[in-house]
Simulated scan of single mutants.
Amino acid sequence: MDSGKLHISVPVSRNRVISKLPKWYTPESCLQFKEDFHGKVKGACQNRHTRSGGLNISKVVVVGDLYVGKTCLINRFCKDVFDRDYKATIGVDFEIERFEIAGVPHTLQIWDTAGQEKFKCIASAYYRGAQVIVTVFDLADIKTLEHTRQWLQDALKENENTSPNIFLVGTKRDLLSPAECERTENDAIRIASEMQAEYWSVSAKTGQNVQEFFFRMAALAFEESMLRELENSSLSTARIGEANVIRIDENAEAPQSKRTAEPGLGCC
């Protein structure tokens, strides 16, 4: 504690530490070919006190048709489990994943939204404020790929004044032969290009490319968040890394929220 401020530090597991910018899936499916974090971000991370307990959060919304494997994808990364007999998501669910990226704490708040039409109005309310939109389809069902454009459009409607990072993810890679996968991926990469999205192909069953995808997503979200913070810091005296810090200041009044609270979020 210093100057009346209590910093709350949450340990990060060793398998959630990212020191270098993870690479893309394939050059054809990538929008950014950088080998490392932006120079300004690297400099800021090296110069600040990384043990201050800052909690910087990026909101991720995962959208797509029913049964394309959204929940299985999230559970494989967050819990390292695979259950083929899961129940369809009702409304929304979410997971919290904490990382240490370039020595700085960063958190992903991952919202798993329902693919059923009857829950679409409920789920869409949670799209707001997304820094990352992940649009998921089933590699073994080409119709779900065609529907990704509409899912993305719905998510972007709730984020008209921002520019979220966009990913297109094909699941159930293990069900296709290499030749079948290549044919479908050619179509997927074309659609990803139209979406200005980065494309990834994964298997929640085998775990293929799952960790690599989430690490890439987390790193790019972190970089974007840090660049915004650096931009804002030039207009204020706030120290880099203190955005969204959980702390108690006995002398300060609680700031007014600039955004209407999302339904059902409470303290999150």
Rank of each mutant, 00 (worst) to 15 (best):
Ser9Pro: 00
Thr148Val: 05
Lys20Phe: 04
Ile248Arg: 15
Ala155Glu: 13
Ser225Ile: 06
Ile166Gly: 06
Ala254Arg: 13
Asp65Val: 00
Glu223Ser: 02
Ser193Gly: 09
Ala254Thr: 12
His147Lys: 15
Phe37Lys: 05
Phe94Thr: 02
Ile142Gly: 15
Gln256Asp: 12
Pro11His: 06
Ala221Glu: 10
Val17Tyr: 04
Asp83His: 09
Glu231Phe: 11
Gln131Asn: 13
Asp187Val: 03
Ile240Tyr: 09
Asp112Val: 01
Ile246Gly: 15
Lys5Pro: 08
Tyr199Thr: 05
Ile110Lys: 03
Lys120His: 15
Phe213His: 03
Asn75Tyr: 09
Val62Pro: 10
Leu168Gly: 02
Ser233Cys: 12
Arg76Thr: 02
Arg247Trp: 02
Tyr86Ile: 09
Gln131Glu: 14
Asn251Thr: 14
Ser177Phe: 13
Thr135Cys: 12
Ile122Asp: 14
Ala243Phe: 06
Arg239Tyr: 08
Glu250Tyr: 10
Gln211Phe: 08
Gly39Ser: 11
Pro164Arg: 02
Ile191Val: 14
Glu100Thr: 07
Glu117Met: 12
Pro27Cys: 00
Val81Thr: 10
Phe215Cys: 03
Pro255Gln: 06
Glu250Ile: 14
Lys79Asn: 00
Asp93Glu: 13
Leu220Pro: 04
Gly53Trp: 07
Lys20Leu: 01
Leu108Met: 00
Ser124Tyr: 03
Leu145Ala: 07
Arg239Leu: 10
Val81Cys: 03
Thr71Leu: 08
Asp93Ala: 10
Gly39Tyr: 13
Ile191Ala: 12
Gly4Pro: 07
Tyr25Ile: 05
Ser234Lys: 13
Leu168Asn: 05
Phe99Tyr: 08
Lys118Pro: 09
Leu145Asn: 01
Cys45Ala: 14
Asn75Leu: 07
Lys70Tyr: 00
Pro11Asn: 00
Glu146Gln: 15
Lys118Ile: 09
Cys121Asn: 15
Lys79His: 00
Glu35Ser: 06
Asn15Met: 03
